[in-house]
Simulated assay, not measured.
Amino acid sequence: MAARTLSTAPNRIIRLECNHNNPFLPTWNTLGLPRLQNSWLGIIAIKLSINFINVRPFLPKYPPIKATVSFSLPTAKPEPVASTEKMPKWSSKAIKSFAMAELEARKIKSPTTGTEALLLGILIEGTNFASKFLWANGITLLKVREEIVKLRGKPDLYFFSPEHPPLTEDAQRALDWAIDEKIKSGNDGEITTTHLLLGVWMQEESPGYKVLTALGFSNEKSKELHSLISEPEFVD
């Protein structure tokens, strides 16, 4: 790469570069661009190298935030051996709520997915019965977010959660409670977000329970929901 520096005016310098050794770089000949000739300047080959510019180093280096939806939810309970104890399936809305919970855990910069994140996931999914019940009782997404900030404090701006933040013990117990409750009911059908919400409520020392309590959720409302999910025709 040969370079020539010319001074055309005071405080103004033009730097010209010509590459005669790399056949892969386009030149004026291959691009059909005109020659600029001057008795003292010589021939300037005008090159365009837009395709060779890599903009990736100039982009912010933030890890991508994404959620992965699986066909089931993690459980600490073993699969039942007897065919009469078939493990019930989670509803699609419950699975989506869990995926949203993982995403929310990353947004609040939590290293784990806790009961408060499960609560956020239920509300963000929005179409499930549990979220509608919460909204009807004045427990909105904005209020839950505010209570989580009060409980946890503002997150560290430079902390990034793992792609799939692992469940806390409280959150895992909430999922297992939902599975147990569905099995004990003896009803067919799926485990719903309402089961999941009640599972969060049953973890009395968990952040999710504290947020619900601060926003007016009570044992009376829990019993109301429990009576609904006990009905065979209940769906998410």
Rank of each mutant, 00 (worst) to 15 (best):
L48T: 15
L48V: 07
I50C: 07
V55P: 07
V55L: 13
V55A: 05
R56I: 13
P60L: 14
K61Y: 03
K61L: 06
Y62M: 08
P64V: 04
K66W: 15
A67R: 10
V69N: 02
S70Q: 15
P74F: 08
P74A: 03
T75E: 09
E79M: 07
E79S: 11
P80N: 13
V81R: 15
A82Y: 13
S83C: 11
M87T: 01
K89G: 15
S92M: 05
S92P: 02
K93L: 12
K93G: 14
K96C: 05
K96S: 11
A99H: 06
A99M: 10
L103R: 08
L103V: 03
R106K: 14
I108T: 10
S110N: 15
A117W: 00
L120N: 01
G121C: 03
L123M: 06
E125A: 09
G126Y: 02
N128F: 01
A130G: 03
A130W: 00
G138N: 10
K143N: 13
K143T: 15
R145C: 13
E146H: 11
I148M: 05
I148K: 00
V149L: 12
K150M: 09
R152C: 04
R152S: 12
R152D: 06
G153S: 06
P155H: 12
D156C: 04
Y158D: 15
F159W: 13
S161A: 12
